[in-house]
Design a protein around this nucleic acid. Structure first.
Length: 405
RNA sequence: GGGCAGGUACCGAAGCGGUCAAACGGGGCAGACUGUAAAUCUGCUGGGGUAUCCCUUCGGAGGUUCGAAUCCUUCCCUGCCCA
């Protein structure tokens, strides 16, 4: 039923940034192989932000590999923990969510996650199932297993502490709550981004404290966002969503800084290892042009979530709009209802939703970013006749046909 | 409980009675250039308006003043030290 243990190890370690303790994992795999029992592989997900992006895909793809090896993926929807708010990588306390909101988000999360995960070998659990049942004395018992010094070892806690940034007590409880998930499902392996290292280790410790065989840990690299600076996240707006259109997905990949190309190629697509090293060395030697490398990466990513045809189409579209500066194929048409068909352009830009305010629209016109039917408009008092359909280009990539209703 | 220091635009951070829609940096947007929505350079970055004009904003609520982000009162929030 399972592939040979060493082969499994190799697959598990590929593209992972850390796997430990290796000997324990090896032993677990051997046991599973002998007894023909799949390992339970845990991945926690945060339902406070249900919009998945390709940053999340790295760890999801790793989980998928486990599934393909025959192991059991257990997705923990942190509906209860979301009420605390994970402080990971955060300088501020997160707002708490209601249980209801998180349930709904969890559903959305699942829909997107199954773009990557197989629905076989998949179990979904909500952690309110066991956490909400804990009494205060249960919590105190749990809390007694860990010390303040230990918890302050965590980078973001100690950093915040040093910089006099508030930390609420309940945030200390977060890693412990997450650890209880591992206890509850008796996880053999837990997956996470490198920023989760601390939490996952606490999981091991707490499992031991509760007399359960400790989990092994597989850490995946964190993918930087399209800005190349920060970790990819929705709130920073530097993300490529799994639900983005092929066109946006392609374009966003093209916008990453050159230094990130290899990282995206490797971790967002999990290519064959020989493909990855070839790609990397050719890019290094200059044989592969950075732009072409990005195109290749963008195509692969779009293909993963759509199809090779869609990827090709997105590529053509990109060439057309940015290299040749032409309008894209598909442009929405908006009909507006005005008394007169002749209107100040500024007015139209706002009512059609292209500009958030007239001031903003004027600024863009002054800066030369507005085109009507391909002609740059530089007069902020310009009017536009909407009797016939007009093509408006607002900024670099917003195109819209506008016509009087 | 006591003492001290703070809360400023998307974020960080100046300003400490008028010249403040508020320096500076980051971010964002635009233009030029290009190999791309890379890099670099330049400009813009509260709202309305023809306007050297008006409106909204500096934790909340009041007050002093011709005039407040700047002074006073009070409330809320945060950090530090002491207990």
């Amino acid at each position: 039923m399972f592939p040979p243990v060493q082969e499994q190890m190799d697959i598990i370690k590929s593209y992972a940034s850390e796997v430990f303790p290796e000997d324990e994992l090896f032993a677990k795999l051997e046991k599973s192989y002998k007894n023909n029992v799949p390992l339970k592989v845990k991945l926690g997900c945060d339902p406070s932000k249900p919009d998945l992006h390709i940053g999340h895909s790295v760890v999801l793809r790793k989980l998928r590999q486990f599934q393909d090896l025959g192991h059991k993926a257990i997705l923990i929807v942190g509906d209860f923990t979301a009420m605390i708010g994970d402080p990971s990588g955060r300088s501020k306390t997160r707002p708490a969510l209601s249980l209801e909101e998180t349930r709904l988000n969890g559903q959305t999360y699942l829909e997107q996650a199954t773009k990557i995960l197989s629905s076989n070998n998949l179990e979904v659990r909500f952690n309110s199932e066991w956490l909400s049942k804990m009494t205060f004395s249960d919590v105190i018992k749990l809390a007694s297993k860990y010390t303040v010094a230990q918890i302050l070892e965590r980078d973001d806690f100690s950093l915040r502490f040093k910089n006099n940034i508030p930390i609420s007590i309940h945030e200390f409880l977060y890693p412990l709550a997450q650890a209880m998930d591992s206890v509850a499902i008796e996880a053999d392996v837990e997956l996470g981004g490198t920023d989760q290292k601390f939490n996952l280790i606490v999981g091991r410790e707490i499992q031991k404290a509760y007399g359960i065989e400790p989990q092994c840990i597989v850490l995946m690299p964190i993918l930087e966002g399209t800005d190349g600076k920060e970790k990819m996240s929705k709130s920073l707006g530097n993300y490529i969503a799994l639900t983005d259109s092929p066109r946006d997905m392609f374009g966003k990949v093209m916008s990453i800084p050159d230094e990130l190309i290899v990282k995206y190629f490797k971790y967002a697509t999990f290519p064959k290892l020989e493909d990855a090293s070839k790609f990397e060395s050719e890019l290094e030697s200059g044989k592969l042009h950075p732009r072409d490398a990005k195109i290749e990466t963008a195509k692969r990513i779009v293909s993963l979530y759509y199809s090779t045809e869609e990827a090709e189409k997105a590529h053509q579209e990109f060439e057309k709009v940015f290299s040749k500066k032409e309008a894209p194929d598909e442009i929405d048409t908006v009909k507006v209802n005005f008394e007169d068909s002749v209107q100040p352009l500024v007015e139209v830009l706002v009512s059609v939703g292209l500009a958030p305010s007239k001031k903003e629209a004027r600024r863009l016109i002054e800066q030369g970013g507005v085109y009507v039917d391909g002609n740059r408009i530089s007069d902020i008092y310009a009017t536009i006749d909407l009797t016939t359909k007009r093509l408006i280009k607002y900024g670099k990539r917003k195109f819209l046909y506008v016509q009087k209703d």
